[in-house]
């Protein structure tokens, strides 16, 4: 275990930024946290988490996949993919680190998505333990440890110090570079903080939320539950929950004609949108009920069925605080699963 005084944190950032693009959560003008590329003057936010999830780093909201040039009847396909530069994301919370695993299972399974894979290989994830979780947090429900998040490097932040532990070779290489600023130390302080976090987690309002009722193979059990009608009744059909969600990965591929050529791009899509499954001759999810059901069934049943029981929710709580009408996965789990918490 290594440690470093928080006074020196900007020097640490500077050191990292010498060889890789560094992104840290920083306060935006309106006070909410957002990942910003570090440069002198950008301060590490004290907020619990960013409004947007860090999935952007691996699956950007919009990216160009390829271009086409057309001339008469001919088409030229231009593959202008390029390797991502090395980058480091600092201060990622336990839930978000886990969300990368959820995305990996989709994008790194065959056939591998080369766009995603390239970024995933070049990115180093530095996580930070959650010393002050919010009432909307329920990562423990999914077996995630906010006391000791995963990631290439795990850090713990106290009043005046920051502690580092490398978990992977990528992480070790990063800490190697920081050796001028860090010193060896024992785990006393970190253990203390972990205990504190555990004590807080036990006080959170959603601490008793369980996933036992859900998982693969439960489609029949939940699909025709009349409660979907009631739950989806207030849903506006906007895409807020899906766009702030770190694990929502559905995308759309569209063409944009620039007048000089055609760009084929990929952008986030939302199963909550009415035209998500609309085809030329029909739509198999006609009302908001079916779309709403799809989102939660996907997270709680379909995804685990295809991924060894892993849920496609990490309990980050973003949808709890951002849904315009406060309908969210916790309310769904409690109602549908009849889980008493």
């Amino acid at each position: 275990m290594l440690k470093c005084s928080l006074d020196k944190i900007n020097s640490v950032f500077e050191e990292i930024a010498k060889t890789a693009k560094l992104y840290i959560p920083a306060d935006d003008k309106d006070g909410s946290a957002v990942y910003k590329q570090w440069e002198n003057g950008i301060e590490w936010s004290s907020s619990l988490n960013t409004v947007r999830s860090p999935k952007d780093f691996f699956l950007p909201q919009m990216e160009n996949l390829m271009e086409f040039k057309t001339e008469g009847k001919n088409i030229e396909v231009i593959d202008n993919r390029c390797e991502t530069e090395d980058f480091v994301i600092f201060g990622v919370r336990a839930c978000d680190v886990k969300s990368f695993e959820v995305l990996d299972r989709v994008f790194l399974s065959e056939p591998v998505d080369s766009y995603y894979a390239s970024r995933r290989e070049k990115g180093v994830i530095v996580s930070t333990a959650c010393s002050k979780p919010s009432e909307t947090c329920f990562c423990k429900t999914f077996g995630i440890s906010p006391e000791e998040p995963e990631g290439d490097v795990t850090t713990w932040k106290t009043e005046d110090e920051i502690f580092f532990k490398a978990n992977t070779s990528k992480g070790e290489a990063l800490l190697e570079k920081l050796s001028a600023y860090t010193e060896e130390c024992d785990e006393t302080v970190v253990t203390e903080q972990k205990e504190k976090i555990s004590a807080i987690m036990a006080k959170l309002p959603l601490k008793d939320l369980k996933t036992d009722a859900f998982g693969g193979g439960k489609t029949e059990e939940f699909f025709n539950n009349p409660v979907w009608e009631e739950l989806s009744g207030s849903c506006l059909g906007c895409g807020t929950c899906t766009f702030v969600c770190p694990t929502c990965q559905c995308y759309d591929i569209k063409d944009f004609n620039t007048g000089k050529g055609v760009i084929r791009f990929r952008c986030w899509d939302s199963c909550m949108y009415s035209e998500f499954t609309k085809m030329a001759h029909g739509n198999n999810r006609i009302t908001q009920k079916e779309r709403f059901r799809q989102r939660f069934m996907h997270k709680l049943v379909y995804y685990p069925e295809n991924n060894d029981g892993m849920f496609s929710c990490v309990g980050c709580g973003r949808c709890l605080s951002k849904c315009p009408i406060s309908m969210n996965i916790v309310k769904v789990m409690k109602k549908i699963g009849d889980v008493d918490a």
């Binding site: 591929i253 899509d269 199963c271 998500f276 499954t277 069925e305």
Partner: peptide
């Protein structure tokens, strides 16, 4: 079966029926 598809490889997330 036929449903709306974008990627063709099970990643874009729209042509599922159940899992």
């Amino acid at each position: 079966l036929e449903l709306r598809m974008k990627c063709g490889v099970g990643k874009c997330g729209r042509c599922n029926v159940g899992a």
